[in-house]
Design a binder for these strands. Sequence first.
DNA 1: AAGGCTGGCAACCGCGGATTC
DNA 2: GGAATCCGCGGTTGCCAGCCT
Length: 269
Amino acid sequence: MGRSPCRADDANVKKGPWTPDEDQKLVDYINTNGHGSWRSLPKQAGLNRCGKSCRLRWTNYLRPDIKRGKFSEEEEKLIINLHSVLGNKWSRIVSHLPGRTDNEIKNFWNTHVRRKLLNPGIDPHTHKPRTDLDHLLNISQLLCVAQLGNLMNPLDTVFKLQADAAQLAEAQLLQNLMQIMNTNQRDPCQLEGLAVQQTPQKIPIHAGAAPQNHQILRNSFEQNENQLPGLVSTSPETAQDSTIYEAWEKLLMEDEADGGASYWKEILE
DNA sequence: AAGGCTGGCAACCGCGGATTC
DNA sequence: GGAATCCGCGGTTGCCAGCCT
């Protein structure tokens, strides 16, 4: 497995920020010739850069279809949901956000979202309440208050606080999913983060056993819905025909109709 | 006013999968 | 089949502007 020869110790190749002149050369070249082989591009475009640097500059900054500006709330939610399923697979996440770049999303995650999740004590890696020592220190402060209030066993208090936090997180995710269902946003990418969060146990998906799979999913959702605290509204607006598992059934059926080797099975598995 | 700190972002690095020879 | 090369990805670094003390 060889490594790219484009390296820092290559003294002939320029590094660092791009000048407007370099940008223009790169854009002009790609507009007329396409990028072709990135390796040979710099030479042909008259740039003293390595191909890798050119590719990065093009994909992260110069591409004409790049959407600049702040992330909308919808985009932010989508990123969080996708991240909860896909983890740091920025390239996969970015495929659901047209006009954004993986670098942009990665930076956005590391600077904004991570902090936003950490603040209420959500682990940005697992999307579950944090259990590390720092966070437990904070919990211990709450614990003192709780103990003064009702003389609970300290351990019971910790467990209760963590369980409450987990339930709140789950409830919030389910609520988001309901909203998406209700606004008829059937883009599967919006469902994947949310719905899978509702299935704490690993669900085996058997190829060619659709009814069985659907029943497992149904049971799983019913079970989890029963566990949720009363935060999820049961008003007529939310308790509509299109329940979560029905939506999932539909997705799975569409999936199976596609021929099986599916993205959904991959995610569920 | 100046120095330190922090957040945001562009760019680089190195790894590993895919492709070519 | 295996070595060489290319490409893309994710992690990390470094710079800069704005804020704080």
